[in-house]
Design a protein around this nucleic acid. Structure first.
Lengths: 209, 209
DNA sequence: GAGCAAATTGAACAGCGTTCAGTTAGCTTT
DNA sequence: AAAGCTAACTGAACGCTGTTCAATTTGCTC
């Protein structure tokens, strides 16, 4: 038993988050449990509930850390050149590389949180910060900030979809078709349409059927 | 207790799958449990294990049903016209509509199965059948069948990413930005690049950095 | 040294997946 | 009809889970 007052609440919090990250890295999100975290930091479950609301809360905090790490990872790999396509491609490849390097943490961002409870404001802010990088890279291609945001979301959702496919296939089939080539195809094709269709606005929508 | 011989193994199997679908529709994948399924069909857990290997197996069977339902759903909404872009757009919208209409079932396709165990052959076949619809719609745009397959995967991964974003936002923020417009943007932009870049091949890859 | 309050514990509860010895029910054989 | 057999079915048990909270321990103050 840890001696009383040996660690501050904040210290316990950080220790628990560290331990949770280790467990997730080793066993994935399903392997995360309060008892394991408690044992890892040499406290008991009861103590965890003084520091976190519940396991969902702890999970959210781990995800928040992941978002911070992802943000820094992407920032460190930004292409500062003048070509927007290169910049976006670099960002997409960095994103895919993070998913590859930190698969369990990255997966947990999406495996959790599908509940009906809205994420708190501060969490959405961290998310927005990541999206902001994409918007910044896309900004040179569009004057309208709102349009840039929409485009960024479409493009990033697509990049994310490709990453998902990549990770899934790495787990199931060994036939690892090149995700980087897929991303490159997506972005070059997508930007082609973007450059051509400056006049063609997508808001308000132009119904198809 | 159900009387012995009242239902054949296959009948029990179907009853269990029906019950599981109902539970998932009501409570989502996390709400699915062997005990609930057993109670719903008025048998006990032990019987379930005579019919299914374990809960993972049952889950896979439910997903297989969902894939079949999705395939039929998409087929029923195919655009038989001559314009490939229209056909793909119709398919994408149908996919998004299914995700919307059957969110828990659809989500379960991806929430499960991230394990390291490969999906069985027959399951991958059902998956391939769905992908085949996309490839068929794209076929007029490319002579090379392999290239068509690659393009279909990129495009569909992207459509899926947008669907994910849509469903997530429906669950978190009420600010439901139009997913249909996003899909339309993706497809029209993507196909622009496809039409232009016939000469530009993506295999073998042309490294970027 | 007594008393207090905060920190920490761990047993308890309900639920989970999974197993398997034991019971039951229908059919066959005598 | 009775006995025996076998497949169907049960449900208690095991070890795990998240969560709660009365009870205990600890360091500090008076």
């Amino acid at each position: 038993m840890a001696r009383r007052g040996e660690h501050s609440r904040e210290e316990i919090r950080q220790m628990a988050l560290d331990a949770a990250e280790t467990i997730v890295a080793r066993e994935g999100y399903p392997g995360l449990s309060t008892r394991k975290v408690a044992a890892a930091i040499r406290y008991t479950v009861g103590t965890l509930y003084l520091v976190f609301e519940n396991l969902d809360d702890l999970t959210l905090q781990v995800n928040a850390r992941t978002l911070d790490a992802l943000y820094e990872w992407l920032r460190a790999r930004q292409d500062k050149g003048n070509d927007p396509e290169q910049a976006i491609l670099a960002l997409a490849n960095a994103y895919a590389a993070y998913a590859e390097a930190e698969t369990p943490r990255w997966s947990m961002l999406f495996e959790y949180a599908v509940q009906e409870n809205a994420q708190p404001e501060w969490y959405l802010h961290k998310l927005g910060r990541v999206f902001g990088l994409v918007e910044a890279a896309l900004a040179p291609l569009s004057a309208d900030a709102l349009e840039t945001q929409r485009i960024a979301r479409v493009l990033w959702a697509s990049v994310h979809g490709i990453c998902l496919l990549k990770i899934r296939q790495r787990l199931t089939l060994a036939g690892n078709q090149d995700a980087e080539a897929m991303t490159r195809m997506l972005i070059s094709h997508f930007l082609c349409g973007l450059r051509q269709g400056q006049g063609q606005k997508f808001s308000p929508p132009n119904p198809v059927q």
